[in-house]
Design a protein around this nucleic acid. Structure first.
Lengths: 201, 201, 201, 201
DNA sequence: AATGAATGAGCCTTCATTCAT
DNA sequence: TATGAATGAAGGCTCATTCAT
């Protein structure tokens, strides 16, 4: 037995859990499957996680955190488009970096628990409100079409989830640049006023 | 025991199942809960359904069917806007008529089974492709913004799901008219070319 | 499958549990052992009892109840000796009627749980205080030797437990009459003043 | 790590085990609890003891040994009362010196194992027979009431256990002198003939 | 000798499904 | 057709013990 270091083993287990959860879904995933995938004895799992549920929770929290971290506040006094692109790149990147994890979040997390649903919904509502705020600012500058910001934000989030999930599920190797560009096109085409108000006015 | 009509008893069981599934989620829902809610003995359940899974499947199929039925082919030679509105009314109506069922479809269906996911995904892909086709036609007539039709369709479907789920989850009593109008605004604002090309050309 | 009636099946399970607990002790007793002894499927156990612990609790409560019921208040204004004999007969009878249950109470109950110990101790303290009271009364009438009533009561209870357990454990077929007489002799010899004060004085 | 003396570490572990066993009972006591209490690594436990069971056994054997050692043969040709008092002092002292250990012996030992029960019972039977013998002798000298010696011995042992356990469990700080005197009173009051036959007769 | 990470056998409990009445 | 008692496979979790370092 190579003297694997604790953090590393934890990571291995986490990855194994992610794979199994993604492949079989939460309930069909057995602890046995996870430890087999991690090439570890059953008891070892419980040295690193208290619960089957808690591994799942940790995985979900991980994606949520990554997404949150990727998002930067849009400064409307500067040029908006590159900032938007930056956010898109970050969010899309989170998913393309780890498609399995993406599926976990989108596909399995909602239906697990009441507690889970709440947590997840809280996350989405946070995103939505943040996005709605940005849209509002954009609207007051005449950059964004005059739609209800909250509903629009919901729509955008849902739209992004679907598009990204589509990509994550499609077998085609996904060229990161192309995806980013496509999402940018969708978003700007749908949200932004065109032609953009000239800076000179 | 009054000899209840078979179809009626089936309906009662189905409704009971829907309630329980919605309240507790698929896995936490026990056959016991369902038969208790339906005021029927445990064995009776299996006279009407082969399986726990099959009731759920039937419920999900029901929503999918209702949605499919509500959608009418858009005839681009006639005025598009009222037809779009008709479709929106139909789809939104399905959900507002039965919010619990909506939650079932959106929240619990995806994470159940591999088989289930496939079926569901098939349904969505069907919707998407149909919508993409319509968008394509619209684009060739200069009515719809020049975005990738498939991705755009995905985006719209995701967006609708999210907005509708928001509504289904929010406590506010939802005025059907207002919702329809809001969705129409979002869709036309995001998708349609503006100002609409004049009919005279 | 004979259509066994529910109460009867419960009894069978209870008896099976008693036997297994007595033979192997609480922890070594597996639910499998119990249901095997009861010739019933594993799940059936849980139709009648919520828990492994709860069967045990029920068995213990049963002995405690039987003992409590057997004890009658001693009326010191009447002749004490036959009343004492009656109590002895009742208590001893409880044990001789069901030696296995006796062993359960004495041998396994104390070491199970904190909660259990408390309950059991409560029972004994109740007995002790009741007995102490009787002894006190007896002393004020000059019938009982002048010993500390509480300690004396404890002593008597412990002594009875030990003697009865001895009997329950010994293989010898125990003649009920003889045991009763022996216990009576011990108790009266140890506790009662002799010669008894004459009633005429 | 200062190289602690082996015997000393063993003692520490034994004491830790005793405490944990007493607090939680045998089964609820985890090796982890013991080593934590002893401030030692888990593996270390197995350098000093082969087994969880064996530590417990050792503790129980310890009490049994202490008791055995405390008891001296009563010489009926000399004055009996001080010898009896000496024995009482010894036995009572063992318990008062280490109430936790007392509880271990009385509360948890009986229900552990079949093997254990046998051992324990063997010990008690030994005590009983020894005591019965003494009582017999005492009877032939007219010092002890004419009761069945074996049963009487059982009774006394049980009585002592109960009284001592009562004391061990009660919160009151127990004055050794008082306890000894109380037990002496009980025993002599219950067992000895009174008035004592005059030595002259 | 000491450590503590790893092991894996074992058991209670759940619950979808069956079937005799 | 309806019932509900019975079934038993399955799985999460525990914890005494081992052993490489």
């Amino acid at each position: 037995m190579p003297p694997v270091d604790k953090a590393q083993r934890r990571t291995v287990l986490l990855a194994a859990a992610r794979d199994v959860f993604v492949t079989k879904g939460y309930h069909a995933a057995k602890i046995d499957d996870i430890v087999t995938a991690a090439a570890v004895a059953k008891g070892t799992f419980y040295l690193y996680f208290t619960d089957k549920r808690s591994v799942f929770a940790e995985l979900v929290a991980l994606v949520m955190q990554r997404i949150s971290e990727g998002i930067v506040r849009v400064d409307v006094s500067a040029d908006v488009e590159p900032q938007l692109r930056e956010n898109v790149r970050a969010v899309v990147g989170v998913f393309l970096d780890d498609p399995p994890l993406t599926r976990l979040l989108f596909t399995f997390a909602p239906g697990l628990d009441t507690a889970f649903s709440e947590q997840l919904r809280g996350f989405y509502l946070g995103l939505r409100d943040y996005l709605a705020e940005s849209l509002s600012e954009g609207q007051s500058l005449g950059l964004v079409r005059p739609l209800d910001p909250r509903q629009c934000a919901s729509f955008v989030i849902g739209g992004l989830k679907e598009v990204i999930l589509d990509l994550a599920l499609s077998e085609e190797v996904t060229d990161r640049e192309r995806v980013e560009q496509a999402v940018m096109d969708l978003l700007s085409g749908m949200l932004l006023v065109w032609p953009p108000p000239s800076g000179r006015d």
